[in-house]
Amino acid sequence: MCHNQSVRKYWEYFVQNINEYLAYRLRLFLSLASNLIVPITMIWIFSSLPQSQIAGMTKLEIVRYYVLGSFFYSFTNAKVDEFVKTSIQHGELGRYLIKPVNFWILAFINDFSLRFIRLLISLPIIFIFAMIVGLPLNFLKTIISPTVAIVLVLSYLLSFLFSFSLGLLTFWVEEVWGLQNLKDTAIKILSGLAIPYQFFPIAVVALLKWLPFPYLVIWPLRIGFTGNFLTEVLIACVWVVIFYLLGVWLWRRGLNIYGATGLY
């Protein structure tokens, strides 16, 4: 009974979030459409080149990479740091702490509801985008598999914990947008979102496989890039555990110095 009530309140929070996001549909659409600008830029630059293969990729492969990359980015790139940051800065965290709710779960639902709605709205946008850039419409078939589903879950979890830990730094640093930029830039470059790994020097890719970045955002597009999928899953799981422990540590230390009236 108690368990059911607990699930119900989080479910209500999830529904409430979805309704709030849907209340500003144009805002949501603009946000999703703007995610396509960088991929479009890269696709058009590569399309303008005379050669048929670039860094071992055909032009069609490049188009597919950017189209699917922007699709995964809208879903797997957690932005919960913003929610954690504002909750701490504006003193809202104090309100959550005195309620019978778990802040971590609330933060998760807050971000996941947005990811969920973005995923749903992204699908038609991505299909239109694929048509504009001339990608065959069966492009999604190639990535629908249980392996991709596992990878997506792990990827999102890692992204969430990474972002959550960063947001918790607000306990110590008044303004974390610089660090948020640092995170976003690192993800864009090192996850291969801006430029595929085929353009990177081999030594850099060999080093990157030990870092969390290849397993964030567009991992489904390069499953098996290290030569062994199980090793990749293992490395990703290790990073999930590391960021979880880091989050717990920052959370406990941060609560000790938190004044509950916000930082400003």
Partner: peptide, 27 residues
């Protein structure tokens, strides 16, 4: 915070430079 914002600003520069460095041999 100021140092963090400096780092944040220069992140974009790093992104632009890295993109150009990676693209130049091919584009």
């Amino acid at each position: 915070s100021f140092l963090a914002t400096i780092a944040g600003s220069f992140c974009f520069i790093v992104l632009y430079i890295a993109t150009l460095v990676l693209l130049m041999p091919y584009v």
